[in-house]
């Protein structure tokens, strides 16, 4: 039963991440949502390795997760740099100020 609880946990994390990224107004919260989404995806890899092979250390899953953590770091780093630029320019983190384009 433990494997399905792992899958459900990661699905819940992915759900929370997508919900935060699509509904939150604060840019920082949006990027926190993306990080939660990434964590859920990584957990999914590990839990599927556990289901498939019965151990938590499948080499392929581990290498993907480590690579994915690095990539998420870069993604969120670029996102936070943009957030900083938005804050310097508009003095707020609310995405509603970004109204020049039609969202």
């Amino acid at each position: 039963m433990i494997e399905y609880s792992l899958l459900i946990t990661s699905a819940v994390l992915v759900g929370i991440g997508i919900y935060m990224a699509s509904t939150k107004k604060n840019l920082l919260k949006i990027f926190i949502g993306i990080e939660i989404l990434a964590t859920g995806v990584n957990l999914n890899f590990i839990s599927l390795a556990f289901i498939k092979y019965g151990e938590l250390s499948d080499a392929l899953a581990n290498s993907i997760v480590i690579t994915s953590i690095v990539i998420d770091g870069v993604l969120v780093g670029v996102g936070l740099a943009l957030t900083l630029l938005v804050y310097r320019r508009y003095g707020t983190l609310n995405v509603d100020v970004l109204r020049k384009l039609r969202w």
Binding site: A21, F45, L48, L60, I64
Partner: peptide, 26 residues
């Protein structure tokens, strides 16, 4: 600036959804 913020949020979520799909393929 606005376009980049919009692009990174939408496309970043999409690449992670792609990775979620890859995890199921795995």
């Amino acid at each position: 600036l606005e376009a980049a913020v919009k692009y990174i949020v939408i496309s970043g979520v999409a690449s992670l959804i792609l990775l979620y799909g890859i995890s199921f393929v795995y």
